[in-house]
Design a protein around this nucleic acid. Structure first.
Lengths: 348, 348
DNA sequence: CTGAAAGCGCTAACAT
DNA sequence: ATGTTAGCGCTTTCAG
């Protein structure tokens, strides 16, 4: 009884061969039920657990999936992770975290980890494929990769996404429906699909309502708090500032609301704000943020589900999977009132 | 050229033995520099990458660390994950996510994964050891486990922690220093060490200032938003409500502020609030939350650092490692003003 | 139904 | 400085 038990310890103890024990532990029908139960008992008694490394080598699997994001520190990914983790564990898979921080080397590295056998499959949420590295040209479309959240154009892998443009339209229509005509937009960084689509949705809704977009009404941020603040300041330095802003994510929306408060403007009395994401704390914000809810946990579940099917040899879906979003109307939007702006600013 | 190259493909191509190639790839000094570079080139040319499964089996390692939390969906763990991930990757380790949801079976399962060889070490942030399962009594103290964040009493593993009681004292002293005498506390669930210690700190600061704690001034929550709201409501149903509250985490503090707003009370004019954690969005809240900042990323770094040292055979630290906290004074606290409470409630 | 034998791809001990 | 040999612990043919 030295060290942990091996499969052959059980075999020896029971007078069986290692092969039979292995089969028995796998609950293989070829093994007599009586033998199976003897093996189970012995395994229990010896406190046996198979060595996954040996099994992995033999079966050419790792029973792990890589979840690759731009920034593990971003609260946005949390619910996705939750969904992915839950679905993975139900199927006996573990989750390996990948973090690129937009570094192309790392992006390539995670593809390498797939080849290495570190993981059996990968969920990519970085919005890009590796542009450099050995495999840049050779990315086999058959790789078990699912792209989620941030779409990638001209990409051979299955996608799980939301309809960003449609969601943005809905958000802007909500503002227009409240009587707002001077509606501005704070977008994300624009080469990225996600930002482009949300921006496009904004424009479409404005065109549809025959509203013009004055110069300076389209500000660009980087999805971070401070950029929302900056963009908002720029909007209110315009000769004719907006009465409503559609902000491309909640975090920048918080920044914008902050700035408005600094300017002595009230949300929603003076300015209405719609965000995008419905972060965990958005409903707890003051005012509670009206925002587009994307069901992140479901996105995670769906992505992992597709990956599992691919790994099980079930084939890949042909069309992208689109998860529906919904607009959560809360306290940061209100009907347009053409009144003079209040000027009871906290910080004059 | 069928399938991915193996080590022996390189050996064959170069007329070397597999062993030499292996050594060369490991940059072993025993191999002639010339040979090493030939091997490197060949590996590059063939786009060779070692199969980690085979290596793992042979070396009895997995180069992965398990990070086990109560709830992967909790934003609180984000920065920890970030710190852990960064430190791990610097050392060539990957991070496997573990999620217990307070399920004792799962808690035990992750210890099993350690034995299985799924991971080489584990960072435990669940505040408990498995109480059941095969290994409950047999937990070898030598296991490469680091306990972080949520301490565990009578636990043989190294700890990385903050001084919760001291931090709580500092927070409450801040309130008392502002002239508050009716200071209440909303705690976390109390069998848990973290909650107990923060609660203790509150009491110590009160005693130290010779302030009494009226009946009902110690409310218990569960670290979730709604419980903060409920607890706050209870406080303001007391005959003599507090003028300041020390809340055991930011999330409940948000809930409390929400409730105060509902009651028509202003923070900080009527009631001062101090939280604990300094979440990502706490500074963006309105009012910006005064709170205890625990440097979560550093905690993550430190924990992973200790684990790496243990895995490297460097031995375990004897004393718990204590990471300093700091009080971030922001807009949710203000000097006590014995005025009548404003009654411009939004919801009468 | 069970056993014997082979081997996954790598590294490490032991040669030379 | 390199090669030979021997496994790591498991699963899976192939035989019986």
């Amino acid at each position: 009884m030295t060290g942990r038990p091996r499969i052959k310890d059980i075999a020896l103890k029971l007078g069986l061969s290692a092969a039979t024990v292995s089969r028995a532990l796998a609950d293989n029908d070829l093994v007599a039920e009586a033998t199976r139960s003897r093996v189970r008992d012995a395994a229990q008694a010896l406190n046996y657990r198979p060595d996954v490394r040996a099994r992995n080598l033999r079966t050419r699997k790792s029973m792990a999936a890589l979840l690759v994001v731009r920034d593990v520190g971003n609260p946005f990914y949390l619910d996705i992770l939750k969904g992915v983790e839950a679905t993975a564990r139900e199927a006996g898979y573990s989750i390996l975290m990948g973090n690129t921080e937009n570094d192309p080397d790392r992006e390539a590295e995670y593809f390498d980890m797939l080849r290495d056998g570190h993981a059996d499959g990968m969920i990519l949420m970085t919005g890009k494929l590796p542009s450099r590295g050995a495999q840049a040209e050779t990315l086999p479309a058959a790789l078990p990769v699912v792209v989620a959240l941030e779409l990638i154009e001209d990409c051979p892998f299955p996608h799980v996404q939301i309809d960003n443009a449609a969601a943005a339209r809905t958000a802007v229509r909500h503002l227009i429906g409240l009587g707002h005509r001077r509606v501005a937009h704070i977008s994300g960084p624009e080469p990225e699909m996600m930002s482009v689509l949300r921006h496009r949705g904004y424009r479409e809704a404005m065109v549809e309502a025959e509203l013009e977009i004055p110069a300076g009404y389209e500000q660009r941020g980087d999805y971070q708090l401070e950029s929302g603040q900056r963009a908002c300041r720029a909007l209110f330095e315009l000769p004719e500032p907006p009465s409503a802003i559609f902000v491309a994510n909640d975090e920048m929306a918080f920044g914008a609301i902050h700035e408005l408060r600094r300017l002595g403007l009230d949300v929603p009395a003076d300015v209405s704000i719609v965000g995008f994401d419905d972060l965990y704390l958005s409903k707890a914000f003051f005012p509670p943020l009206t925002t587009v809810c994307q069901p992140r946990q479901e996105i995670g579940r769906a992505a992992m589900g597709i990956l599992l099917r691919m790994l099980g040899g079930g084939g890949r879906p042909t069309a992208p999977m689109v998860i529906p979003t919904s607009l959560r109307i809360r306290g940061s939007t209100a009907p347009y009132r053409p009144q003079l702006r209040s000027s009871r600013g906290h910080h004059p």
